[in-house]
């Protein structure tokens, strides 16, 4: 009897150990990686990928802090949160020796202030937050700037991201300030400006805002370019507008949490994602811009020249990258609570 118990126990342990070396826990933005990429990776390497998703950097950060950087092997924070998480010792340095495809990446997006030398992060995709409009609706078709969103004709037809930086950035840009404004007076000014806009909002959604647009629930939506790319593919009346006041650009980065269990598999997967053909496929499927230069060469022309995926230089000049706000984030959070609980 005893021997049987022991055998069963050791078998369970053995499968645990085996399972541990053949698994990878990815915590990623929702709708950010095609399922087939995971399946192909598993087919090639035998490593099973378990993916869960989040809809904001804040949620990712709170979760990683809560589990003390354990339990997940790969996360995809935006630049500002890479800086914050690395400052707080939540990230593990990457072993560049295992990332043979690193040279494919655009040097312009590497070695930035938020992570010098890319010690902790490599860019996964980048993109913009701007306005998608349904041109069938005359009020929406006339939108060229953030200021246009305040027009009474758009009341109840508007979708905003369920994202603090995304919404406050609109107010700051309309006032001509930086997206990364740290002066609490200016943030409060933006907040006052945004309060009446909340009346026009039909829905806040950062998970799958294209749905509300495609279902005709809203006529204008502030969203990420990948969502606009997919929506415009399904409904040609949907256009993506870079607002005249300027808009937000962001880069999401692959990072390994400090106490990850499957570090080798995480490196293996990062390197897989950096392959030109894989990166090009993800870019085409998701509609976000790839930092992978070798992948860009593989893209079909209609994707490479698509202004939603790769903005024209004159539009690009209006974009501003989000950075870590430091303690100034407090003023943003207070405003966000005010806007949401109005």
């Amino acid at each position: 009897m005893k021997r049987l118990v022991l055998t069963v126990l050791s078998l369970m342990l053995a499968t645990q150990v085996l399972a541990a070396s053949k698994e990878l826990y990815v915590y990623n933005w929702s709708e950010y990686m095609p399922d087939s990429v995971l399946a192909d990776f598993t087919k090639e390497t035998g490593v099973k990928v378990i993916m869960s998703t989040y809809d904001s950097n804040e949620a990712l950060y709170a979760k990683i802090r809560m589990v003390e950087a354990k339990g997940y092997d790969l996360i995809v924070p935006s630049t500002d949160f890479v800086a914050r998480m690395h400052k707080e010792g939540l990230l593990m340095p990457l072993d560049k020796g295992k990332l043979t495809n690193l040279s494919n990446l655009d040097p312009k997006l590497m070695n930035q202030a938020f992570d010098p030398d890319n010690t902790y992060s490599v860019p996964y995709m980048w993109g913009s937050t701007a306005i998608a409009v349904n041109t069938k609706d005359p009020a929406a078709a006339a939108i060229t700037s953030y200021a246009d969103l305040w027009k009474p004709e758009l009341k109840g037809k508007l979708l905003l991201p369920n994202d603090m930086r995304g919404v406050l950035g609109m107010g700051l840009k309309r006032l001509g300030y930086s997206l990364n404004e740290t002066d609490p007076v200016k943030v409060a000014e933006a907040c006052e400006l945004l309060l009446p806009l909340m009346e026009s909002v039909r829905v806040f959604d950062s998970d799958s805002p294209k749905q509300a647009l495609l279902n005709n629930e809203v006529q204008a939506a502030v969203l990420w370019n990948g969502e606009a790319y997919i929506a415009s593919g399904e409904n040609p009346d949907i256009r993506y507008v870079y607002p005249a006041e300027g808009f937000s650009l962001w880069v999401d980065n692959l990072c390994i949490p400090k106490n990850a269990a499957n570090v080798d598999n995480a490196h293996l997967f990062i390197d897989y994602l950096l392959r030109p053909e894989v990166a090009a496929f993800i870019c085409q499927e998701m509609g976000y811009s790839s930092p992978n230069l070798a992948a860009q060469a593989l893209l079909p022309e209609d994707v490479r020249d698509n202004a939603i995926v790769y903005p024209a230089p004159e539009d690009m000049a209006l974009g501003e990258f989000e950075t870590d706000l430091g303690p100034a984030v407090k003023a943003y959070e207070e405003c966000w609570m005010r806007l949401k609980t109005r």
């Binding site: 904001s56 804040e58 949620a59 950060y61 709170a62 979760k63 603090m164 959070e333 966000w336 609570m337």
Partner: peptide, 8 residues
């Protein structure tokens, strides 16, 4: 939820 996840 927002207190725990967004504004911490």
């Amino acid at each position: 939820r927002d207190q725990f996840l967004t504004t911490r």
